[in-house]
């Protein structure tokens, strides 16, 4: 099964090679750009650009399909529901009892759907092309405290392991004749105690051992530690950053300083 935590795949594309800090900054700027722009045409251009990036990320069909299924469903949902709840403007196209659908409502729905599509896809591209370790490393280099970065990394590292533990516990309880599908809500709640209880005990034990293992390897010995992998900005990183910065600043200035409607 494809899960959210294994969407990253190893590959050697331009996007994979980019510095994680540049990628995070770019994703942030492109997201903001999607919010700034309100013209459907410009948003479509942005979405096309983002989809091209998605293709360049060379993620597997399986992972792309898994991610985009969510995005497209969400977009469709917004495009359909928006006009139903936003009856402002004219001309009115349909009036059916309390339901009023207007033409501007439909346009706004489409605009929002595409905006959300841009936003979600661009974050997926980040996840597709950046390993968790690079994400954490990037965050630490951007000023996140090392301890917090490490905690985040450990949480990400043990998340799948915790899932495996939960699966084993469920199997162990089913082997004793527990049927998770049966019973009323209270009976079911009690059954989940039978899973969560052992899961928490086992997580706490792991955490305990983890603390000992980390201390045994001099965790916290000095305030300024060194790093095996340093992030270094290369020319291509600067070029990419400058490009995205321009893509963000030009429309922003045009809209808010020059009052160009985009």
């Amino acid at each position: 099964m494809t899960r959210f935590n294994d969407l990253y795949s190893e590959a050697d594309t331009f996007l994979h090679r980019l510095d994680p800090r540049v990628k995070m900054a770019s994703v942030l700027m492109l997201s903001l750009l999607a919010f700034i722009m309100s013209s459907l045409a410009y948003l479509l251009v942005l979405l096309t650009f983002i989809f091209i990036l998605l293709l360049l990320a060379r993620s597997s069909y399986r992972k792309t399909a898994f991610a985009m299924k969510f995005v497209l469903r969400f977009m469709a949902l917004i495009a359909i529901l928006w006009p139903l709840f936003d009856p402002s403007g004219t001309p009115v196209l349909i009036r059916l009892g309390p339901v009023v659908i207007t033409e501007p409502g439909i346009w706004r729905g489409l605009t929002s759907a595409i905006r959300v599509g841009c936003l979600a896809t661009v974050w997926y591209i980040l996840i597709f092309t950046t390993s968790q370790r690079d994400l954490v490393r990037g965050l630490v280099k951007l000023g996140l405290r090392f301890d917090f970065g490490l905690a985040l990394a450990i949480a990400l590292r043990y998340f799948p392991a915790f899932g495996t533990v939960m699966d084993s516990i469920i199997d162990a309880q089913r082997s004793r004749g527990m049927e998770f599908e049966k019973g009323n809500i209270f009976a079911r709640a009690r059954k989940y105690v039978a899973v969560l209880g052992p899961a928490i005990v086992s997580a706490l034990k792991t955490a305990d051992m983890l603390a000992l293992a980390m201390q045994s390897r001099a965790y916290g010995a000095r305030r300024n530690r060194t790093y095996l992998r340093e992030l270094r900005m290369r020319l291509s990183d600067y070029v990419a950053l400058a490009t995205v910065l321009a893509m963000f600043v030009v429309p922003a200035v045009a809209k808010y300083v020059l009052s160009v409607p985009i």
Binding site: S131, V136, K205, L210, A218, Y219, G220, L228
Partner: peptide, 29 residues
């Protein structure tokens, strides 16, 4: 070295795992 490998390997890659100790005592890269 402890008995259970699962709870003493907490990094995301093999090399980071091995580098963790030396990093903590600020050994040059």
């Amino acid at each position: 070295v402890f008995q259970e490998p699962e709870s003493q390997l907490f990094c995301m890659s093999v090399e980071e795992e091995v580098a963790f100790g030396p990093e903590n005592i600020a050994i040059p890269r």
